[in-house]
Amino acid sequence: MSLDINTKKLTKNAYRVTKNRNYTALRVRVPGGAINAEMLSIVSEIAEKFGDGSVHITTRQGFQINMIPLDKVDEVNKYAKKLIIGLEINAVHPENGYPAAGTRNVSGCVGNRECPIAQFNTTDVVKRIEKIIFPNDFHFKIAVTGCPNDCIKAHSQDFGIIGQADVEYEYSRCIGCNACSKRCKKVSTEALTPKNGKIIRDSRRCIGCGECVLACPTSAWTRNPNKKYKLVIMGRTGKINPRVAMPFIEWTTEKIITKIILKTYEFVDKYIDRTLPKEHIGYIVDRVGFKEFKNFILEGIEMNDGAKISESINFGGYFNDKDRIFKTY
């Protein structure tokens, strides 16, 4: 007996329309990829009970539970309730499953819970952002990474949040061993130069990787406890113009970044081309122009002291279809 399914509703409920007729797959959000054994066992239980026992780990740190019969969706949603509550996902009626799928799971590297290099607790930041932006139908991809190594690949997101160590130097504690300047030269940007048995830091070169703090034997280099972040924007994969996200603001705060993300939802609401099934934020910015985007989202936001904002962005990447830029006359 054939099924009568509203696929728009289905996909909004975080199920996929798959190539296998009458079967769907559930997308489980795991903010920041942080999950405990109990939640993991619920994923496994759903897969065994309703699916074919197979699970795909998605690139956004979620789970796709495969081969769920479409007529079991309501029943699966009752199970998914435990995941929605356990993983602290905003939902008005958790027993009805996920309320939206447009704004993707916010992903994050492991952060300073484990990683010695990370500048902050990425999971905490991810969870705070997830709480503020989800549920939402607009197509946003956000990732949070602990340091400029960018293990989460924040550079391929619409918004990539990168931890920056706001390093401070205590002159009298420095023994001039040059461990920091050697390390900086080797693994980072050569922002540190030895002088008279001490170190000079070029703040224009420093990217806040924190390697000097790790290398310093006397703790002459430490981090200012007020956290700072770099925001890279409008990176993407995709068919038309894959490109790396570019720096928009450096040395700013979580509060300001959160405001910017929320303002961007307003921007999308105003400018999105509603004739398309969906329009991705990056393409909207391309269409409307960076200046307009920047003016819109920064309106009313008071910047922190020391923040650096990009005047213009030369997005790179490449166009698979040159006709999109070169118009023939």
């Binding site: 300073n112 010695p116 500048q119 160590a165 790790l214 703790s219 430490t222 981090r223 406890p225």
Partner: peptide
């Protein structure tokens, strides 16, 4: 205790 000035972020010295 010097808060958050340890070698790793969010650790103390």
């Amino acid at each position: 205790r010097v808060e958050s000035r340890g070698r790793f972020s969010d650790t103390d010295l």
